[in-house]
Simulated assay, not measured.
Amino acid sequence: MSTPQWVDDWLTAGRFAKYVKAAGGDTELALALYEWNSEIAAAFLRDLGHLEVAVRNAYDRALLTHPDIHDGEWLTAPSCTLLFPPHVAKDKNGNPKDKNATPRANVKDARRHSGYDLGVVPRGKAVAELMFGFWSYLTDDLHEKSLWVPALHAAYVPGADRARLHAALSALRDFRNRVAHHESVFDRQPENHRRYIVFVARNLSPDLHQHLTRHSRLPAVLAARPRPPR
Rank of each mutant, 00 (worst) to 15 (best):
L138E: 10
P158K: 07
E129A: 13
H143K: 11
S146V: 10
W148G: 03
P158E: 08
F134T: 04
L142I: 11
A155T: 03
D141Y: 07
D141P: 02
F134P: 01
L147Y: 11
L152H: 04
P158C: 08
A151I: 06
P158N: 04
H153C: 09
A154C: 05
D140N: 15
A151Q: 05
A151C: 08
H153Y: 10
G133P: 00
A128N: 10
G159H: 05
E144L: 04
D141G: 07
L142F: 07
D140H: 14
L142A: 14
F134S: 02
G133C: 02
T139L: 15
S146C: 05
Y137N: 13
D141Q: 09
P158R: 01
W148A: 10
A160V: 04
W135T: 06
A154P: 00
L130T: 05
G159C: 05
E129V: 00
A160D: 05
G159V: 01
G159R: 01
Y137G: 15
L147H: 10
A155G: 06
H153D: 11
P150C: 09
P150A: 11
L147I: 14
E129L: 06
L152A: 08
E144S: 04
S146F: 04
Y156W: 11
L138G: 10
L138W: 12
L130A: 09
V149I: 14
V149L: 15
V157N: 06
L147F: 13
K145W: 02
S146T: 14
V157Y: 00
P150H: 07
Y137H: 15
S146I: 10
A160N: 02
E129R: 14
G133W: 01
A155W: 00
L152Y: 08
Y156E: 05
D141I: 00
D140I: 03
L147G: 07
F134N: 02
A160G: 10
P150W: 10
A155C: 07
A154M: 09
V149C: 10
E144C: 01
P150K: 11
L142Y: 11
V149D: 12
A154Y: 01
A151G: 07
Y137L: 12
K145V: 09
P158T: 06
A154R: 13
D140V: 02
V149K: 15
L152R: 06
A160F: 06
F132Y: 12
A155D: 08
G133S: 02
L142Q: 15
A155P: 00
M131F: 01
F134E: 04
S136K: 09
L130D: 10
E129H: 13
F132L: 15
E129Q: 13
L130I: 06
E144G: 00
H143M: 11
H143Q: 14
L142E: 13
L147K: 08
G133D: 03
G159M: 04
H143G: 10
D141W: 03
G159P: 07
L147T: 12
S146D: 10
A155S: 13
H153V: 06
D140F: 05
M131E: 08
L152M: 11
L152S: 11
Y137C: 08
